[in-house]
Design a protein around this nucleic acid. Structure first.
Lengths: 357, 357
DNA sequence: CTTAACTGCTTAAACGTTTAATCAACTCTT
DNA sequence: AAGAGTTGATTAAACGTTTAAGCAGTTAAG
């Protein structure tokens, strides 16, 4: 009596939830072993073409979906790649991610995106989360705040492939994909000089972040190279938000000896700077020329349109994904190290194109 | 001899890769069973306080990290929640995600973010990916393109909790969190009327998307209610990008009888509209008042600042997460249905604040 | 004709947990 | 002092795969 009760309640459950079909169900249908089915589905050379075909047919009929957790557990591979970015709400990062995803999906990998919001703590949490989820690799762009690299060292020490892009860190000695920031600064400065600018300011990012430091070094060296004035007051450090772009532009306008060109290390801050210039009826580019960095879509939509550096986000995303795949494919022992530095491209727009020239 | 060889080769391996510590290692140290360790870590009532304490201590010493895959496989729960959004590169969506993540992380869930890029196909792929990854639930905002709901039905039929936010769909009959779009339109129209506007245009989103349809209905009804002119030419459909905002604004300016106010259903399109107005030296708000939708941060940074509707993105994210947790916690049988409609808030800024009044 | 190699499969163990079913040893009740 | 209940553990099976090892049957080589 008790048994009957139990069984009937179980039956109700079963009829509701309809168990997923497993490899065993397929094996039962064909009267072969589960192992054979597994091998057939993986196109193992030791399984006959006939069996493979039959297995695939039955799998389709039963709407078989492989249990990712089981295979991940057994094989030790989750087929998941973790991605850490400061924020996804810029075109640069969302484009990088989109292209990474495309490449990785093709090889059977899925991605988990996490945002650090430029916070060191959140970045550490993200790393822990990703390690917990047993990702097969991590592709990251570091938060501005991050100085202590111990969490990234932890990833390395676990033998999980780590690829950095854009915001990298030399000391870590891992794969890196980015653009030539130093050279980009040269391009910008030389472009501005060609337009007749003689006093070029730079609203730069945080000095301790490598890419921004490279941009600053590039700016300084280019200015020196062309014997232009290199005043301390012309070089300011910023967090590169719209808001701070406004503040730093206001600061530059207060100078006794104003610049006739401003090179801003980020487009959002460049937009803020442009707003101030427009509000104060300062003609751009004739009074002050402006160049941004990143080629965010809005740069071409504002008035005047902002010259900027195209960072090849799509390319970066694809290369980062491919670099991971290189690691994943080969045995863990051989450790190749990729440092890919792409040439960036200066897109000249109205904000730095002097018609008077 | 053979044994010795095998062992030594194994030892080399171990010293290199240093195996992760498992529940068994802890059990061995304490001379108890693995099951006891598992229960201790889960704070089972049948394990003594002393044992629990010891287990936790050893776990810490050995730097034990639970194997998520194994527990997920055994328990049938992956503790992963899938999130699908059109794009992450707006403040609205990234803020929603950030807050969702916060709530879910606290309960031990992690999230997998995927972007549909407004493409129906990519949305379907995302759903398949998430199902494959065995997420415990899906929280989504639908792509503009999506009309066919069969993929979402698939999620429902698998018994996986599905929660929609912002871009939902009535026919699906699932939980939904959003704002009162219809009422928001009323607020905007009435605000503009108070400013003295008599001819109000609406650059709306796609009619077939429910939220945009509600905004359009709200606009139409509010106009009717106050006996203002309701010309077909004043109501235009847009994809709400910056670019299309520009195009649709230009279209409105070509009318014989120009509007004196424009209500745009999205901030990016409102920005495009503002650019055109600025370029053509049309005074905002005196000649034409402007109101956007979404309260993206840049609305307060442009000149003039754009009035907009605050959608309470943080709230939406948190509520969506909580709604999922409600489902996750209770047995699958009882199916409660939440439709949460938040009141939005009109943030009045320079673009619709007539000083002449 | 024997040995070797290949083909196509099966068996069984393993991945690291969770959990139902037991069990031994106590502590109360009555 | 026997039965009932509680406490704190153990055992063993299970989750759905993958994979090393093995085995029967066929083919090829010497």
């Amino acid at each position: 009596m008790l048994y009957l009760l139990k069984r009937s309640s179980k039956d109700i459950k079963n009829s509701n939830i309809k168990k997923k079909t497993t490899i065993k169900d397929i094996a039962n249908v064909l009267n072969i072993s589960a192992a054979a089915v597994s091998k057939a589905l993986h196109d193992d050379s030791r399984i006959s073409a006939k069996t493979k075909k039959a297995v695939r047919q039955v799998a389709k009929n039963l709407n078989y979906q492989p249990n990712h957790l089981a295979s991940a557990l057994r094989s030790g591979k989750s087929n998941l790649v973790g991605v850490i970015v400061p924020r996804t709400n810029s075109n640069f990062f969302s484009s990088v991610i989109e292209n990474m995803e495309e490449v990785l999906n093709k090889e059977g990998y899925n991605i988990i995106i996490t945002q650090s919001n430029e916070s060191y703590k959140k970045e550490c949490d993200s790393i822990d989360t990703l390690l917990f989820t047993q990702v097969d690799g991590i592709i990251a762009s570091m938060a501005n705040e991050t100085i202590d690299l111990k969490y990234y060292e932890k990833v390395k020490s676990k033998g999980i492939p780590l690829i950095l892009f854009d915001r990298g860190e030399n000391d870590l000695n891992v794969d890196y994909i980015g653009i030539n920031d130093y050279e980009s600064s040269h391009m910008i400065v030389e472009h501005l000089i060609k337009q007749g600018c003689k006093r070029i300011a730079h609203i730069g990012g945080y000095k301790r972040t490598r890419i921004f430091n490279n941009r600053i070094r590039g700016y300084v060296d280019a200015i020196k190279k062309h014997s232009l004035p290199l005043d301390d007051e012309l070089l300011v450090e910023s967090n590169l938000t719209i808001k701070d772009g406004r503040a730093k532009m206001q600061q530059l306008l207060k100078l006794n000896h104003r610049p006739d060109a401003v090179y801003v290390a980020g487009d959002y801050a460049a937009l803020g700077a442009l707003q101030i210039l427009n509000e104060q009826n300062i003609n751009v580019p004739d009074d002050i020329a402006l160049v941004g960095f990143g080629d965010e879509p809005f740069t071409s939509m504002v008035t005047p349109s902002i010259s900027s550096i195209n960072q090849h986000s799509a390319e970066i995303g694809k290369l980062a994904a491919k670099t991971f795949l290189d690691h994943a494919k080969q045995s863990s022992v051989k450790q190749l190290l990729n440092k890919i530095i792409l040439d960036a491209e200066l897109v000249v727009r109205a904000s730095s194109k002097k018609v008077s020239k």
